[in-house]
Design a protein around this nucleic acid. Structure first.
Lengths: 334, 334
DNA sequence: TTGAAAGCGCTAACAG
DNA sequence: CTGTTAGCGCTTTCAA
């Protein structure tokens, strides 16, 4: 069995209350007693019982992180940021990945409930169900990288419109006017934001994005292959591909090589995230870079500040922290 | 405030004990009462208080996973396997990543203590300190992919010696006899196992591995670059590079391109893990493939079986589940 | 300063 | 079958 406060109290010849006070550095205890108790606790190898503390304090000192797309390096970078911040404030980060489906997403959130004081999520589903669930649980939520349209929450992410603008401006400048977009899902706010940014730049030049060049569902290589073949079969063909993630862009590079389409000669390619793999694909990939670690760190900070704000935690208005992306230009776009 | 058993008891006009029994499907309760209580609990939106249950049951119903190298896709694949198995048995998976240093590794384990019933770890440090810590915590531990030499535990991973044999045999067959090895750290058992397998195959042909072609510390691109330049400066040069991970192998391909060394013409390259990026690098990469999802799943299974084994949990001997790797041959080795 | 006592929400004997 | 009681280990009044 583990050491408890009672064990220490007995050995020290004081009450349990005294030990509790001493170990949690309360003021109403004699410095000498505190020192003695702390010393003893250390010797006895005391470790606080988390469940008991949680039960009395109604605070778990942990934050829950629920994320899709575990295989995307940008996601793990953001996670490291969250963990770094949480650890600094002595909070545990409890992570759960899911496959992007609403059922798994919901299930993970439910499993975490009662073990965490709040959530950082990158919602993969814009369903009402998810928003309802989170409202019912009534814990602080921070959205990271992707807002939840059905619910107002704190937000940390990058400015995807600006990302779209940067990419579009760059490609236009390189003489590409027929840009296709490979996105994740039509209902995804960040996809829409990127498109909005791109459209803005196009409009500025009196151009527009062709609807039929927007293709969804690029979370698997097979889908991306199919999308690319469809695009290549069109006349005129797109002369540039913008992908919502680096992984998708790498699939595009691989597929174009297979189809013997010259990059960037015939088709320029750009991705999003600028992860370590952007430099390692068939050729160096142009990519929109986000400060992923910082995005995660900030997400955790927003959550923790809300948790530690004793006063009107619930009342405080939602905050949005938006980071500016930049463009890493490499060979794939000439 | 949340709904408690007492709230339900009051509304149903029964005792708290009755509600507890009904909701946990105990037998000593009238079926009708149970149904009524369950119905009511559902309507009232009851959710069990995890801390209270943990305190009474001395069981958290969660497993802790502590891993280094979050950016390696093989790691996240294994993690998905763990989660899948845990979720099936209604256990929460609480993940913590660390940077590979002993301090962070220890800290993460300590933070998880009290919130989990056991650990799945891939030890990044073979220090005595880590073994001592785990022994002191006295919770079941399963090592995944990497054993802990200072401590006997359950193990799930692949047969790295066989991986080394497969790679060496393949490269020899392609006429390469000067194979360099880029490993993670000299004290890492899986590195040593791979080398052992390679040496075996070499010895079979009356050949041996040159010590000076074994280079450690390839967790960053800079280190790998330095190692490669050192190798390329040697006479004779190695004619093949075996890397402990795909990411390292991708750095090698990129570096060789930069140095205008033909692959596989002058130097063949092979990696380890066969992740999705193996096909997407400068050229398709030959790689030793492990069933990562299964390795994770099995690791969780070992842990959960130990946790659920009411009888001599502590007594049961340690088990090792070893998966056979296979070789995915691609262009980088001709 | 210190300690006694109440209680967080739940389960597990043990009576009725 | 159902209810009463006694904790699990901790924090927090409130007295002493």
């Amino acid at each position: 069995m583990s050491i408890t406060l009672a064990d220490i109290a007995e050995k020290a010849g004081v009450s349990v209350a005294a030990v509790s006070k001493a170990l949690s550095d309360q003021s109403d205890i004699a410095p000498a007693t505190r020192r003695r108790i702390k010393q003893l606790a250390g010797e006895m190898g005391y470790v606080m019982n988390v469940a008991a503390r949680t039960l009395t304090m109604k605070k778990t000192m942990a934050i829950g992180v629920v994320l899709p797309l575990a295989h995307i390096p940008a996601v793990t970078d953001r996670l490291r940021g969250i963990q770094a911040e949480a650890m600094e404030r002595r909070y545990l980060t409890s992570v759960a990945f899911h496959n992007g489906g609403i059922d798994e997403e919901r299930k993970q959130i439910e499993m975490l409930y009662g073990r965490v004081d709040g959530f950082v999520i990158t919602p993969a589903n814009q369903s009402l169900e998810l928003a309802k669930l989170l409202k019912r649980l009534d814990l602080p939520v921070v959205c990271m990288s992707e807002p939840l349209v059905k619910m107002e929450t704190d937000f940390s992410g990058d400015d995807d419109e600006e990302g779209g603008r940067l990419a579009a401006a760059h490609l236009l400048e390189r003489g590409r006017e027929r840009i296709a977009y490979l996105g994740y899902a039509e209902g995804t706010p960040s996809d829409q934001a990127i498109l909005k940014g791109m459209r803005e730049v196009f409009a500025g030049k009196g151009l527009s994005l062709d609807k039929s060049w927007i293709r969804w569902g690029n979370a698997s290589q097979a889908e991306t292959r199919a999308n690319m073949d469809a695009l290549l079969a069109m006349t005129p063909r797109p002369d540039a591909i913008m992908a919502f993630s680096d992984v998708t862009a790498l699939w595009v590079l691989e597929h174009l090589e297979r189809r013997k389409v010259a990059v960037p000669g015939e088709v320029a390619v750009a991705g999003y995230d600028d992860t370590i793999f952007a430099e390692l694909g068939r050729m160096p990939l142009t990519s929109v870079a986000q400060p992923n670690f910082e995005i995660g760190r900030q997400a955790a900070r927003l959550l923790l500040e809300r948790l530690e704000d004793e006063s009107g935690a619930a009342a405080a208005p939602c905050r949005r922290v938006v980071f500016k992306p930049r463009l890493a230009v490499r060979m794939s776009s000439g």
